[in-house]
C-alpha cells in the first residue's frame, strides 16, 4: 500500500528530506508505523490527519526532538541531503540548528524581543560582533514581518506581545539561526483569524528560501499554503500528493472521509 502512495518525483523540487520506513515507539506503544515521505526543497509540505495520528511525532523525528522524550525510540532511516540524521556521527544539536522548529503555543523566552532573536545566533556564534548581531536580529524580524511593529521596543519583553506577534517572534527566532528547514507544529492553532492570516502570509513568503513542513488541523490552511500534503491516519501515511489533487480527488476513502469531515 505504501508503495503506491509514493509521491511523484518532481524535478524542480528535489527531496531534501527523505524518511524511509520510520517507526516510532513511546516505551512499548507504537506511534508511527513504517512511514515514508520525501520532502521537496523550497516547498511547503503540510501534514494533516486526525488527532493522535502521529503528525507531531513525525515532525519531531525530523529534528530529533524526540530524543528529548524519555522512552521514545525511532526506527527506520531519515536522510537530510542524503546524510542519515540518526547516524552516530551526527550531532543532534547541530542538526536542530539546520532544522528549526516553531511550536503550537507561542513560546518566546521571557527576555527582551532582541534577546529572543539573538539567542540562537549567540549560542552558535553566527555573529562576530554586536553590529553583525544587530543585523541578524533586524533581518530576522523583518523576514518574520514583525519589525514594523516592534522596531521601537526591541528591549521590551517578548512575552508582552500579542499571541500572533509572539508566534511571529518565534518564527523570527528560528530564522535567526539560518536554518534550511523549518518545522511548524500547528503554528496558528492558538491564533485568531487575522493573526493566522498574517502568519500564513509569512509562511508563503518564506517558501522561497526555506523548506517548510507544517502540521495543521485546518484543511483550508493546508489547501491555501502548501504544495504537497500528507494525510496521516493511525500512525501511517495513507495518502500523499500534490495538495490540490489530494483535496479535489483523494484516492483513498479514508482521506476522502477526513477531508469531507466524516471523522477526525
Amino acid at each position: 500500500m505504501l508503495a503506491e502512495v509514493q509521491p511523484p518525483e518532481t524535478s524542480e523540487h528535489p527531496a531534501i528530506i527523505s524518511a524511509k520506513e520510520v517507526s516510532v515507539y513511546y516505551s512499548d506503544k507504537k506511534a508511527l508505523n513504517a512511514v515514508s515521505l520525501d520532502i521537496g526543497e523550497n516547498q511547503i509540505t503540510s501534514l494533516i490527519g486526525p488527532s493522535g495520528c502521529g503528525k507531531s511525532t513525525f515532525l519531531r523525528c525530523l529534528n530529533r526532538m524526540n530524543d528529548t522524550v524519555p522512552g521514545c525510540r525511532v526506527e527506520g532511516k531519515i536522510t537530510l541531503d542524503g546524510h542519515d540524521i540518526y547516524a552516530s556521527s551526527v550531532d543532534e544539536v547541530l542538526l536542530r540548528a539546520r532544522v528549526g522548529m516553531v511550536f503550537q503555543k507561542p513560546n518566546p523566552f521571557p527576555k527582551s524581543i532582541y534577546d529572543n532573536v539573538a539567542y540562537g545566533p549567540r549560542i552558535h556564534g553566527l555573529a562576530k560582533n554586536k553590529d553583525e548581531l544587530d543585523d541578524i536580529v533586524l533581518t530576522s524580524l523583518e523576514k518574520a514581518g514583525l519589525l514594523k511593529e516592534v522596531r521601537d521596543r526591541l528591549n521590551a519583553t517578548g512575552t508582552g506581545l500579542s499571541g500572533g506577534q509572539q508566534q511571529r517572534l518565534c518564527i523570527a527566532r528560528a530564522l535567526a539561526v539560518q536554518p534550511d528547514i523549518i518545522l511548524m507544529d500547528e503554528p496558528c492553532s492558538a491564533l485568531d483569524p487575522i493573526a493566522t492570516a498574517k502568519v500564513e502570509e509569512l509562511i508563503e513568503e518564506l517558501r522561497e528560501n526555506y523548506t517548510i513542513i507544517i502540521v495543521t488541523h485546518s484543511m483550508q490552511q493546508a489547501a491555501r499554503i502548501s504544495q504537497k500534503t500528507a494525510f496521516f491516519h493511525l500512525g501511517e501515511i495513507v495518502e500523499v500528493g500534490d495538495t490540490e489533487q489530494l483535496f479535489t480527488s483523494p484516492s483513498d476513502e479514508r482521506t476522502q472521509g477526513y477531508i469531507t469531515g466524516r471523522f477526525g
Binding site: 526532538m65 528529548t68 544539536v93 547541530l94 542538526l95 536542530r96 528549526g100 513560546n107 539567542y119 549560542i123
Partner: peptide, 21 residues
C-alpha cells in the same frame, strides 16, 4: 514550562545551555 526548554532545544541549544541559559 516545558515549552521554554523545547524552544531552546529547537534552536539548537545543548541541554546544558538550555539548563543554564
Amino acid at each position: 514550562p516545558d515549552s521554554i526548554r523545547q524552544g531552546a532545544l529547537g534552536l539548537g541549544a545543548s541541554p546544558q545551555q538550555t539548563a543554564f541559559h
